[in-house]
């Protein structure tokens, strides 16, 4: 009798935890989706990245040189 009650209690707790995890996952997904929509709203800012790709290449070159000089 006692063990059945304990088992029921554990199962109920597990159900609660699962429901809580599911609701947290849904909330997280909502936040992620909102972030994605917000980023897309500023899509034009990223066009600069395409225009300035050679500047980016210069930054990469500097990082590469500094990495190799650190090694020496």
């Amino acid at each position: 009798m006692n063990s059945t009650t304990r088992r029921d209690r554990l199962e109920a707790e597990l159900r609660d935890v699962r429901e809580h995890v599911e609701s947290l996952e849904a909330e997280l997904q909502k936040v992620v989706t909102e972030e994605q929509h917000e980023t897309i709203d500023h899509l034009e800012d990223h066009f600069d990245a395409v225009e300035n790709r050679f500047k980016g290449l210069r930054d990469f070159w500097k990082a590469l040189i500094s990495e190799s000089s650190d090694k020496d």
């Binding site: 990245a49 395409v50 300035n52 790709r53 500047k55 980016g56 290449l57 930054d59 990469f60 990082a63």
Partner: peptide, 13 residues
């Protein structure tokens, strides 16, 4: 190659 070059610009982080 264009998007690969763009990605190299993120090297600082």
């Amino acid at each position: 190659i264009t998007n690969t070059l763009v990605s190299l610009g993120h090297v600082r982080n």
